[in-house]
C-alpha cells in the first residue's frame, strides 16, 4: 500500500479522446484481464505502437512482429495478474513480455546482421540534451544517459542483446570478437546500467 505515491508519479495520466482513454494504464490492464471490450480496445490502442516497436526491433519483419504483438496482448490478457506495479510501469512490463515472445520467435531462424549504431540511434541514445529528463527521474532518460556513458563497444553489445534480442554468441559473431569477450561486455554493461538506474545521480564510471 505504501507504493501509492510511487505509482502516482510513475504513471502517466493520459488525456486522449474517449473517456476510457483517460483511465490509467493499470485500470486498462485490469479491464483487459476482466474481458471488458471497451477497456481492452483502449489498452490495445494505447500500447499497440510500443508492443509492435519492441517486436519489430527484434524480428525486423512486419508480419512476424505482428504475430508476436498479437501473442503479447493475449499473454497480457492471460497473465495480467502477474503484473506488479511496484516493479515497473505497465508499458515496461508489456515490453518485457513482448521481448520474450519475440526472442523465442527469432530463435527459430538465422538472423542477418544488425547495425548496433542504428539501434542506439533509434532508441534515442544518441540524442543529447536530456539531462533535464534525467533530473526529472525518468527511467528511460536515465538509461539513455547511462548508455551514452558506456564505452561504445559495451553499449553496442548490450543493445544488440537488450533491443535486438541477440544472444552472446550472435553478438560475438556480429562484432567479430571472441564469445568470452562478448559475454564480458554484456555483463559489464548490464552491471553499469543497473548501478546507473539505482543511483542516477552517481558516477558509474
Amino acid at each position: 500500500m505504501g507504493t501509492g505515491a510511487e505509482v502516482a508519479v510513475a504513471c502517466d495520466v493520459r488525456r486522449i479522446g474517449s473517456p476510457v482513454d483517460k483511465l490509467g494504464d493499470e485500470a486498462l490492464l485490469a479491464g483487459l484481464g476482466a474481458g471488458d471490450e471497451e477497456l481492452t480496445a483502449a489498452f490495445v490502442r494505447r500500447f499497440g505502437p510500443k508492443v509492435y516497436g519492441v517486436a519489430l526491433a527484434i524480428l525486423g519483419d512486419q508480419a512476424a512482429a505482428e504475430d508476436v504483438s498479437q501473442a503479447a496482448f493475449e499473454r497480457a490478457w492471460r497473465h495480467g495478474s502477474s503484473y506488479d506495479p511496484r516493479r515497473a510501469t505497465v508499458g515496461t512490463w508489456l515490453a518485457a513480455v513482448t521481448r520474450n515472445l519475440a526472442i523465442d520467435a527469432a530463435r527459430v531462424r538465422r538472423p542477418t546482421p544488425v547495425d548496433p549504431s542504428a539501434l542506439l540511434e533509434a532508441a534515442g541514445v544518441v540524442r543529447v540534451g536530456t539531462e533535464a529528463e534525467v533530473l526529472a527521474g525518468e527511467t528511460a532518460a536515465e538509461l539513455r544517459a547511462a548508455l551514452r556513458r558506456l564505452p561504445p563497444e559495451q553499449a553496442r553489445a548490450v543493445v544488440l542483446c537488450g533491443l535486438a534480442g541477440l544472444s552472446a554468441s550472435q553478438v560475438a559473431e556480429a562484432e567479430q570478437i571472441p564469445l568470452g569477450t562478448a559475454k564480458t561486455r554484456i555483463r559489464t554493461a548490464m552491471g553499469r546500467l543497473r548501478v546507473a538506474l539505482a543511483d542516477p545521480g552517481g558516477c558509474d564510471d
Binding site: A41, G48, L143, V158, L197
Partner: peptide, 27 residues
Amino acid sequence: DTADALASLAPEVEPPAGFEQRVLSTL
C-alpha cells in the same frame, strides 16, 4: 528490472492498418 527498462527503449512504431482490429479478434 534493468533489462526490462532496456527493452522498453525500443522506439514505438505505428502498427500496420487493421492491427488493432486483428488483435481484438484474436483476443
